[in-house]
Amino acid sequence: MNLRPYVYAAGFVLGLATVLLALSPQSAGQVKLAAGSFFVPLYSIEARLQSVHYYASNKTATREELLDQNQRLALTNQVLRIQIQQLRATAEENKTLRVQVAFAANNQWKLRLGQVIGRDPANWWRTLQINLGSRHGVREGLPVLTPDGLVGRVHEVHPNRSRVALIGDPACRLSINVQPSRENGILTADGATVFDHTIVNLTFLPAHTEARAGDPVVTSGLGRLFPRGIPVGKLLSVEPVPGALNSQARVKLTVDSSRLNEVWIILP
């Protein structure tokens, strides 16, 4: 058997792999962008099919279904309007109090809706792709959330799509606050996250913590990456670490990222 073609091919692959793995993050991003452009026609075909499906299901919906849906939406609308009135009064009160104690005013969030277009094919990362990129004002590090709570942060930005590192991915560690006790900790990932992606590790809680299972966990606002007070999850268990100055806990996340179709990005 003639082995020469195999030797040449092996040399080429080894050389190329070495060059690719030695690239800077920016150049690696460019290579990924170029390679990922092969999937663009497939994504646009999928988007077209979805719009056809949406159009067809709209055409075939019965009047009874639409009336029923309309009634439910009207009820939800009434409840939300009452809640807005309540929140408006609270916001006014908050504004007045902030002026009195010379606190900086809270900024309104600029939100943009994005669609999930793919998930990480590797089992050892927890990321997903959305259809918004730098052309839509998305920047690296921006928080990503749903009405239920925090999802993660933007990790990689391309012109028309971005990669979001979900809570539990090594690229998305965040500082949180356990609600009643107001203790801070850091959410990290460990082996348990591989088994159940809605469970993450909470470290650096005080040794004699007052936190208990069932306590709500929200973003602390430290580090200024995530705004304060976004729901993250609930404590599942709290365990002291023998001989250490801190305790460990497990947090059940409020957002099940495997069922996400749409997410919101907080734009700067």
Binding site: V13, L16, A17, L20, L21, L23, A28, V31, K32, L33, A35, G36, F38, F39, G118, D120, P121, A122, W125, T127, Q129, H155, E156, R163, A165, D169, A171
Partner: peptide
């Protein structure tokens, strides 16, 4: 192509 969809470095499985 696979790594363009992933958080892996490009060409890691080559």
């Amino acid at each position: 192509w696979q790594t363009s969809l992933s958080a892996d470095p490009p060409g890691i499985s080559m």
